[in-house]
Design a protein around this nucleic acid. Structure first.
Length: 567
DNA sequence: GCCGTTTTCGGCCCGACTGTTTTCAGTCG
């Protein structure tokens, strides 16, 4: 599937055109097309074959031609022509915070600089400040920007960002000048990785609030501090932006700073068509303010009902709201159990009794204890004898438990030839069988897809865990045809896991949305190897919500009896 | 380059901060 490859080329074309000073609208149209491609699980080749490219948002004649060209020839002439004479490193320099296309073009044309090394040298030698409009501070900021880029090249996984943000919000709420404070930005939308953390606070005294914020003990460096907003760097080189606003604009600001950018652009565009103006202070008809204290007022002003932050990605939510057809997203409170945890029978740290205790604290009705199977020796996969031991222990614990039922589960390996790691006779004893891949990651697409497909064809396999195997920011997904997996899952009524581990979040949001369309059930599990990991459940629910899932789409919203009947 | 309840041409979200300049361009989100 070439979707991601083509998206990347479109983004690169956008970068190059921006550098060359092309009008921003043209640049943005390439970025929009790239985003659409990334939001599509269906193979763009299939869409092209069906003459449906022009139905994709942001894809017009010119872009469609380029997609077809890439599918047929493997290259895009426009891209090859535009990049002629420009090094990749030069274009990458646009990623330096504070370095925009105008500045880079100036530096490139006047000083012939096209490497980071040459740029740093020119700053140290004072050559850069001789350029028009370039002062000492700007040069200094570029230098800092290069450093920042090197340190913080990686986006922060949500599991890391969320506790940091919640900690700072709690601190801000303690300022005597602050009334309300909330996380905004991509973190509020629960995106899987976060660029920087956005926090919004309401206060009648913005200056004092900014002062208190930049003086927090967590703050390592202040990047900028004005009269309404400030940016700081905290431990671990994470950037936090605080914006302070008056109480009666809090909703408008929260809406605006939550984004996504594409969602806001569409919303403001609609507002403009209605003769309204939306900014972070409120909704205005002429000079008259018609709303702004609460987020609901912003949506209401353009005739829409409020929608959850997780779906504000311009993936059809505004259109759905117009038709009053927004999904009733699944909530953490509706979840009845965790479908994937490991005990000390295999490679987990906690004993089964401890897992049960934690599950009761979390209010679960059931918990699937899914230890590894025999082939995965590195994780102490269970032999049939050990499975029997575990079965007896679970039975014993269950007989004493009130309100919670432990399910005898396994995370069974799909071996590299596609065979299951336990014989059928043994599999029948389990309440819940999750199958997954832990070997042969490098197999070709066809092979690895077929392995998973053949596992799904077994009536004894209930669920496929971490179906793509990706580790966010560390390891790419294995070459698996997600579309085919989902189609077969629908046919065989096999559930697909949403692995709630912060590093996995697999299946992802886009995949979930597609799964729902195909009628596939999702099962959320934390893959916990320690008790604390069980708390990551909310991240799995966040993925489900970002994928528009409703309670009937999520297997573990079912009561135990109905869950058992699914087998 | 895309798009259409005002448009097939002429628009394309909107404001804060910084630095270098005397009124604004560039960058960012």
């Amino acid at each position: 599937m070439k979707n991601a490859e083509i998206a990347e080329i479109f983004d690169k074309i956008a970068d190059i055109l921006e550098f060359k000073g092309e009008i921003v609208f043209k640049v943005n149209s390439y970025r929009k097309a790239a985003r659409t491609l990334r939001d599509t699980t269906e193979d763009v080749a299939v869409i092209a074959a069906g003459n449906r490219l022009l139905d994709m948002p942001g894809v017009g004649k010119s872009t469609a031609d380029k997609i077809v060209e890439y599918l047929e020839t493997g290259t895009i002439k426009k891209y090859d022509e535009e990049r002629k004479g420009l090094s990749d490193e030069l274009i990458r320099m646009l990623q330096i915070p504070g370095m925009g296309p105008k500045t880079l073009a100036l530096i490139h044309s006047k000083l012939k600089i096209d490497t980071f090394e040459a740029l740093e040298k020119a700053i140290h030698s004072g050559e850069l400040t001789e350029l028009p409009g370039m002062g000492a501070k700007k040069a200094e900021n570029i230098l800092k920007g290069i450093e920042l880029l090197r340190e913080a090249a990686k986006r922060i996984p949500i599991g890391v960002a969320l506790p940091v943000a919640e900690d700072v919000v709690a601190a801000v709420l303690k300022f005597p000048t602050v009334k309300r404070a909330e996380v905004a930005g991509s973190l509020r939308r629960m995106k899987e990785t976060i660029g920087d953390i956005d926090i919004l606070a309401s206060s009648p005294d913005a200056v004092k609030t900014i002062e208190a914020f930049t003086s927090l003990p967590q703050v390592k460096r202040v990047l900028a501090a004005g009269t309404t907003k400030a940016s700081v760097i905290v431990e671990g080189n994470k950037q936090i932006d605080l914006r302070v606003i008056e109480e009666n604009s809090f909703g408008a600001a929260l809406q605006y700073f939550t984004g996504s950018k594409a969602h806001n652009i569409k919303l403001r565009d609609i507002a403009r068509g209605m003769g309204l103006k939306v900014n972070e202070y409120g909704v205005f008809r002429g000079d008259e303010k018609v709303g702004g204290r609460e987020e609901e007022e912003i949506y209401a002003a353009v005739g829409l009902i409020w929608m959850p932050p997780e779906i504000r990605e311009d993936r059809g939510e505004i259109e759905a709201a117009m038709k009053n057809a927004l999904p009733e997203l699944v909530t953490v409170g509706q979840i009845k159990g965790d479908m994937h945890v490991h005990s000390d029978f295999s490679d987990g740290k906690a004993a089964i009794a401890q897992l049960a205790e934690r599950a009761q604290e979390l209010g679960y009705k059931y918990l699937a204890v899914t230890d590894h199977s025999q082939s995965l020796k590195i994780a102490h996969g269970l032999t049939p004898e050990r499975v029997e031991e575990k079965r007896e222990l679970i039975q014993k614990i269950n007989s004493k438990l009130k309100g919670l039922t432990l399910l005898l589960g396994t995370e069974m390996d799909i071996l590299s030839d596609g065979a299951l790691d336990y014989p059928e006779k043994l599999l029948e004893k389990f309440d819940w069988v999750v199958a997954s891949i832990h070997s042969g990651f490098k197999q070709p697409r066809e092979k690895i897809t077929q392995r998973i497909v053949s596992a799904m064809r077994s009536p004894l396999v209930d669920c496929i865990a971490h179906p793509t195997g990706r580790l966010i920011g560390q390891r790419a997904a294995y070459e698996v045809d997600v579309e085919e997996i989902l189609e077969v899952a629908a046919e065989t009524r096999t559930a697909i896991e949403i692995n709630a581990n912060s590093e996995r979040l697999d299946l992802d949001d886009v995949g979930c949305k597609r799964a729902k369309q195909l009628g596939v059930m999702l099962a959320i599990g934390t893959d916990a190897h320690k008790l604390e990991h069980m708390d990551m459940f909310r991240l799995g629910v966040a993925v489900a919500r970002r994928g528009w899932l409703e309670p009937p789409d999520v297997l573990n919203t079912l009561p135990l009896k109905k869950l058992r009947r699914k087998r």
